[in-house]
């Protein structure tokens, strides 16, 4: 086989290999949509994060606006410190409400942001003033049963 033909086939092989990589990156993966060019960090403190994981989505009005970058435990306040990286294109008011929600009944957990009405915006590194922790199913059931029991005894 002549060297030119060989070069041609190898070139063809490398090109379709790279095309496959691009396909995986852009069509299969989320490189096209979820890779924010510029981001800034915000910090939220939760009493309980439930099943939230690093790289989980941050959504506002159902649109992904960022990702969970880091989860840490604060030994002083016994709270979870969650660092969110937010797409630089979006700004949120000071009184934005951060809560941990579940997609579907048993789906993955994400951080939901409900924008408030404040004029001032959150700056990089700011901490959310108001948060709501994850709903833990066991606690919910426990609460429900306690209430039921209380209801049952009251009329007597």
């Amino acid at each position: 086989m002549s060297r030119k033909l060989l070069d041609l086939w190898v070139g063809f092989f490398v090109v379709i290999g790279i095309a496959a990589l691009l396909f995986l990156a852009l069509r299969v993966g989320n490189l096209s949509s979820a890779n924010f060019a510029e981001t800034y960090p915000l910090i939220a403190k939760f009493d309980n994060i439930g099943g939230l994981k690093v790289r989980g989505p941050v959504k506002s009005a159902g649109v992904v606006v960022g990702r969970v970058a880091d989860i840490r435990f604060d030994p002083q306040t016994y709270e979870a410190l969650v660092t969110l990286t937010i797409d630089g294109r979006y700004q949120f008011p000071k009184d934005t409400f951060a809560s941990i929600l579940t997609a579907g009944l048993l789906g993955e957990q994400y951080v939901g942001l409900d924008a408030g009405g404040d004029d001032k915006m959150l700056k990089p590194g700011d901490v959310f003033a108001k948060t709501q922790s994850a709903v833990v199913l066991e606690k919910l059931i426990g609460q429900f049963m306690f209430n039921k029991a209380a209801e049952g005894t009251e009329p007597k």
């Binding site: 092989f13 290999g17 790279i18 095309a19 496959a20 990589l21 396909f23 995986l24 299969v28």
Partner: peptide
């Protein structure tokens, strides 16, 4: 050099 390209092709055609 070939291996990652082949793996990418494998995954892509698998999808």
């Amino acid at each position: 050099i070939s291996m990652p390209l082949l793996a990418a092709l494998f995954s892509a055609i698998g999808v």
